[in-house]
Design a protein around this nucleic acid. Structure first.
Lengths: 211, 211
DNA sequence: TAATATACATACATTCACGTATGTAAGTCA
DNA sequence: TGACTTACATACGTGAATGTATGTATATTA
């Protein structure tokens, strides 16, 4: 069994990505060798070098496979919050909850996030990834702001802050929440309270909160 | 000039740490070799191996030198917030502002944070560092909670959330703020607005905000 | 069905970083 | 003042990872 069909090759490629994710998670990206990835995938380095030019490309493939769908999903939810007829605050809450839910449901996503957050060094070729992430984040930030502006139009917002201020506060909350969630051990108390944290965060912003 | 006095040796040790910080920041911890650190410090690997057993020990020394003082300072400020006679909310705000101020003023602190956040992989020996950081954070989190409880006793808190909820929200805000601050480029717009972000975060919690 | 491209495995050469061993001049101490 | 220790520099051996070159059996295609 040497030469495979195209479908087989696609499966092999995915096997490599999955294997890399497993090894990256345990050994960190830098300390992971091509040999280790190959062994985990039940292949040799030759196979890996045929599918990928370098370890960096594997990591990029790993990232694209998880980040892009999630970013799209987040953008969608937030766009609904900004333009939909429904309660924008509820939609922002939904955006936060859904994102955490994805991490909860998909171990692939969860592990990839963990690798990108605390098992990877952003230098040289990888500095640009940080820039891409920043771009995604600023887009999310913008959409959160729009949603809050919509909420203000609907007179749902407490008057103590501007939509811009609420948006930044929520963005920073979200960022902190992701980091906490990833770094906390599985089934930790805080992880399970996440939904509650999100609810109180949103509750703070509602006009009728003292009613 | 070979053998130095004890003071000279201490200076050399510090030179190594400073050099390591410079190289770590550019090349990342894993890609940095002892040789590169030595060159940056104007020494040879022999000197480094005399002062440190491994690269990990240099990184730990680098961390201790910056983290411990900052953690102490944060604990102090928060303790004052929880026990002092002054407005606890103002003291929480001060805690946030002061911490960012340290990052602003001390390039050593700023660079060390950047290394720990995005130029370092938390695996093997370094997994325990993550645990230590978690412990520090949970202590900070606890003190924030106490400060909010004190604020509630003084009837300064808006009633929409409990002190625990406010504390977690502030902790997550703080965490997100640090990450944003470190990742943003120098003199970025957001970095300069940090004080404003903090103010509105605290303003949200004040009872008299609608007055 | 022959030619060619594909999907790997195997083999090889090179580099690089590491740890250690050894050298050495100056400081320290009795 | 001599013996010992310190604070490094230098030299050496080793393993590990890398990239590439080559081999090869099977798909694919004309």
């Amino acid at each position: 069994m040497v030469r495979k069909t195209k479908e087989d090759a696609a499966i092999t490629r995915q096997r490599i990505i999955d294997a890399a994710r497993d090894v990256f998670l345990v050994r960190g990206v830098s300390r992971t060798s091509m040999e280790q990835i190959a062994a985990q995938a039940g292949l040799t380095r030759g196979a890996i070098y045929w599918h990928f030019d370098s370890k960096t490309e594997i990591l990029l493939a790993l990232r694209e496979r998880v980040f892009l769908p999630l970013i799209d999903r987040m953008d969608d939810t937030l766009l609904k919050a900004a333009e939909g007829a429904e309660d924008p605050l509820l939609n922002i809450e939904r955006f936060l909850t859904e994102t955490i839910q994805v991490l909860n449901d998909s171990s692939e996503t969860r592990q990839t996030y963990e690798i990108m957050m605390i098992k990877c060094e952003y230098v040289d070729e990888f500095a640009e990834v940080l820039q891409q992430i920043a771009n995604n984040c600023s887009n999310i930030s913008l959409n959160i702001k729009r949603a809050y502006q919509r909420a203000q139009e609907l007179d749902l917002l407490d008057a103590s802050c501007t939509p811009e201020e609420y948006a930044m506060d929520t963005y920073l909350f979200f960022s902190g929440l992701l980091h906490m969630w990833i770094k906390d051990p599985e089934n930790s108390e805080r992880r399970q309270q996440t939904t509650s944290f999100i609810r109180s965060h949103i509750r703070l912003r509602r006009k009728t909160k003292t009613a």
